[in-house]
Write a protein that binds this DNA or RNA. Structure first.
Lengths: 215, 215
DNA sequence: CAGAATAACTGCGTACACGCAAATTTGCGC
DNA sequence: GCGCAAATTTGCGTGTACGCAGTTATTCTG
């Protein structure tokens, strides 16, 4: 099942990593807006066209450097919990644990999240946790719950996004209150773990119900 | 609160509608890939630059023509339900009701969802239901539940996206089973209402819990 | 180990997205 | 009506995203 990766796959990961790191380094050095994909590609030793085979936008490589392989880490952390604990707790703890660990790039994160485009790209990365989360949740729920697992994983991803938005709201500009109206009155804006737990809490009953039912 | 919209706002909506309809008409006439934003802008009587003031991509205008104002219709449908019914049911019924109504554009939808880029843009529209849904759910849950409302609305949006993906999976190519593995064994692929209800069902416990608790 | 098959890299060309600043249009108080 | 402030439209310029087809590198098969 776990065939040792061949040269091809290793080279691909190396290229991806080189692009990530080059993107972040250049962004920190010259400022996020002064970096073109051409520069990143050159620094990583590939053609600009190849850059776009790995990342669909200029911003993705930069945020990927701080996001790293968060998705797999979350999934692994969930799988590592003993089977006895509540699935909702396992997921919540894993998410908090892995999202808080920025891998020593907190400085870069601050720089990044001030630029709207990068901020948006960073928030979009939360969608990436859905596939691996789906896999581990499905494993816990059994075959009959595969469909449920997908929905729960997507909901978690959405909640993480909301938590991140709330967390770096102070960093960004004050936004238009918009048609939602009431939401603007109180903006708690606690620490990131607090935001994450608060956002995930409403989903706990859904996890409990899924765990209780066979499918 | 409901100030009669001035000339400015009416013109803006008219321009938006003109762009939507022009985009759809040209896409149906010449094929989705043979339409440039320049063509759409010209047909709507505005400059290409103005097109991008209304839509951030070439595909958005086309899909907006079939999506129309689904977001507001869903929110209105939820608000229209009597306060006695379970919130989960109100939301589910409203979503099924409004997502099934394609406004007579089912032919266009079929044409659209065969192109990957348009398919993706169409799926992305489901994210747009979050803000209005947040507002109506927050109204039902009270001020203390504003935060919960946001998470539930985002989860509903994610579930709708999953339902749409499952619905038009037969239309698209067979996709790589990927690391999720188990999910590929059974692909039910029922009707759209079935897909929607199946995707929303796992969230019902979360709605029930939110309704039961004060906040 | 040779040759076929498969996958990745690259250059080119086209269309797109969007920041910016000037020109035009709308709203509003007088 | 008049003129000012705010919002919208527009052209321009730059950088970006990606389909396509050819080349090169890796993997598979006998």
């Amino acid at each position: 099942m776990t065939t040792p990766p061949g040269l091809r796959e290793r080279k691909k990961q190396a290229t991806r990593a080189a692009l990530r790191e080059a993107a972040l380094r250049l962004a920190v050095e010259h400022g996020p807006d002064q970096v073109r994909v051409e520069d990143i590609a050159e620094a990583a030793g590939v053609s600009p066209r190849t850059y776009n085979n790995y990342f669909a936008s200029r911003e993705q490589a930069i945020v990927a450097a701080v996001t790293a392989d968060r998705e797999e880490r979350i999934a692994a952390a969930v799988a590592a919990r003993p089977a006895g604990v509540r699935l909702a707790d396992a997921v919540t703890d894993a998410v908090v644990e892995q999202c808080t660990d920025t891998g020593g790039h907190e400085r870069a994160l601050l720089l990044i999240t001030t630029r709207p485009a990068l901020r948006e790209a960073y928030l979009d990365t939360s969608a990436g946790i859905e596939p691996p989360l789906t896999a581990v949740i499905a494993e816990r729920l059994g075959d009959a719950g595969a469909h449920t697992a997908r929905v729960l994983a997507a909901s978690v991803a959405a909640a993480v996004r909301i938590a991140l938005e709330g967390w770096l709201r102070p960093a960004g500009k004050e936004e238009a209150a918009g048609s939602t109206g009431a939401g603007a009155l109180v903006l708690p804006s606690g620490s990131l773990p607090d935001q994450l737990r608060a956002a995930l809490a409403p989903l706990a009953p859904a996890f409990d119900a899924a765990e209780r039912r066979p499918g």
